[in-house]
Simulated scan of single mutants.
Amino acid sequence: MLRKPTLLLAFGIFLIGACANLIWVEPKIYMPGSTEIEVEGHGINGPVDILPRGTTAITISHEITNAGNSPVPAGYQITETVIQWVFQRNIASVGWREGDPATHTIVQLSQSGPALDPGESAVISFGPFTVGSCGLFGETLELDSTNIVVESSNQDNEDKHLFFVPSNQIINITANTINGTLYHKDGRTLTHQFRINSGGAGNQWLYTGFSWIATEGSTADAVPAPTGRVPQGPAPQLINMFVTPKDHDHSPLGFGPSVKGKVTAISTDGCVVKQKAVEVLVEHD
Results as ranks from 00 to 15, higher is better:
190 L>K: 10
145 S>V: 09
143 L>A: 05
31 M>K: 14
78 I>L: 04
235 A>I: 11
227 T>L: 15
52 P>M: 03
23 I>H: 04
144 D>K: 07
248 H>M: 00
177 T>A: 15
123 V>K: 15
281 L>N: 09
2 L>F: 08
283 E>D: 14
189 T>G: 10
98 E>V: 12
182 L>Q: 00
16 I>C: 15
49 D>S: 13
81 T>D: 01
150 V>F: 07
106 I>M: 06
284 H>V: 01
228 G>A: 12
227 T>M: 13
211 S>M: 05
96 W>M: 05
39 V>F: 00
58 I>E: 07
41 G>D: 04
89 R>M: 14
21 N>Q: 11
101 P>V: 11
44 I>W: 05
123 V>R: 00
263 V>M: 02
278 V>D: 07
223 V>I: 13
23 I>A: 01
222 A>C: 02
222 A>K: 00
123 V>L: 15
25 V>Q: 13
97 R>A: 15
195 R>Q: 11
271 C>G: 10
55 T>S: 04
141 L>N: 03
83 I>C: 10
285 D>W: 10
20 A>G: 00
64 I>V: 06
188 R>Y: 08
164 F>N: 06
117 D>T: 05
210 F>W: 08
171 I>D: 01
41 G>F: 00
214 A>T: 09
259 V>I: 13
119 G>A: 06
247 D>W: 12
15 L>G: 07
138 G>W: 04
152 S>D: 02
56 T>G: 10
37 I>Q: 10
242 F>V: 08
117 D>Q: 15
139 E>W: 09
240 N>K: 13
140 T>D: 13
158 E>G: 12
129 F>K: 08
167 S>I: 08
93 S>F: 12
195 R>P: 01
254 G>P: 02
79 T>C: 06
98 E>W: 05
275 Q>W: 11
285 D>H: 15
160 K>G: 11
226 P>G: 06
252 P>S: 05
167 S>L: 02
267 S>D: 12
130 T>F: 11
275 Q>K: 01
31 M>A: 14
148 I>K: 13
239 I>W: 05
144 D>R: 01
43 G>V: 02
243 V>I: 14
175 A>Y: 05
131 V>Y: 06
213 I>R: 06
280 V>L: 00
277 A>R: 12
59 T>W: 02
279 E>G: 00
31 M>G: 12
67 A>D: 13
114 P>C: 08
278 V>G: 00
251 S>H: 02
170 I>T: 09
30 Y>T: 05
171 I>C: 01
56 T>Q: 15
141 L>Q: 03
217 G>Q: 06
205 W>S: 03
120 E>M: 14
212 W>E: 10
154 N>V: 12
220 A>L: 03
24 W>L: 03
272 V>A: 08
251 S>L: 03
45 N>E: 09
67 A>C: 07
195 R>C: 10
163 F>E: 07
51 L>V: 08
131 V>T: 13
225 A>I: 01
274 K>W: 04
198 S>E: 12
212 W>I: 04
160 K>C: 13
20 A>Q: 07
156 D>C: 02
274 K>Q: 15
259 V>A: 02
274 K>L: 05
91 I>L: 15
94 V>F: 01
197 N>Y: 11
50 I>F: 03
40 E>T: 15
112 S>Q: 15
151 E>C: 01
